[in-house]
Design a protein around this nucleic acid. Sequence first.
DNA 1: CTGTGGTCCTGTATGC
DNA 2: TGCATACAGGACCACA
Length: 279
Amino acid sequence: MPELPEVETVRSGLAGVVTGRTVLATRVLHPRPVRRHLPGPDDFEAALVGRTFGEPRRRGKFLWLPLDDGDAVVAHLGMSGQFRSDVPEAPLQPNTRVTWDLDDGRQLRFVDQRMFGGVWLSPGGAALPSELRHIALDPFDPGFDPVAVARRIVRRSAGIKRLILDQTLVSGIGNIYADESLWRARIHYDTPGSCLTVRRTASLLRHGRDVMAASLVHGGTSFDRLYVDVNGSSGYHERSLDVYGREGLPCRRCGRAIVREAFANRSSYRCPFCQPPSR
DNA sequence: CTGTGGTCCTGTATGC
DNA sequence: TGCATACAGGACCACA
């Protein structure tokens, strides 16, 4: 579930935990979350000892923790990843996959039930890990240009939802905020990009930025800064979402029942009146 | 290059 | 009650 607002909440929480801290020891408890560390789990455990973290950074849904020698630890939360800070003596949370003992006596833990997420070392990745070069700027990036992205989108024939979920066009948007953005912009998810104007598409992207910014405010106030609820559809989302997960409930604009439809092995929610099929 | 659909994971919910 | 199946979905990859 974690999309840009949740990942940014984790990033800012991590900043207070790891910045300036030196690693004393790393433990890999399950090999899968370090699968993208090609030298293997043993190498990952040994590689970080004695190295110091800088301030965590983010692009889209990817995080990276710069190291003082120019390398970086890259992290992705996948569906269910969490970072937790605790004392080493505290019992491990279920599904704890990797731990780092830090030089202030705290222990950083990567917890991930479904293991779609992971962590790995990126040589020379402090400024921007090479593995993230194909990831586009996200709508919070000062360099993000909605019109430029819109121009690329309207040249494509795929459905608009698939396009805004394409992290090489715009990053940070996942299934929930895609539906929320499309609802705000009154666009059907399967409208071909080529059937949209640059103006309308740029507006959609600005809606995406706005809805994620509004969610980020909730994430920063009602949650522990290091805690992201695994049950993404519960908690504050129920109050703040307009369309996602609201099958059968009245559209907040027109009152018609929200419908849920299968889309690329997942669900899409839309208002049948505000977001009719194109053509 | 572009579009499409499959795959990886496990806990929870639902159905027979 | 118990077992099987569906579902959640971000990133990546194979294939046409």
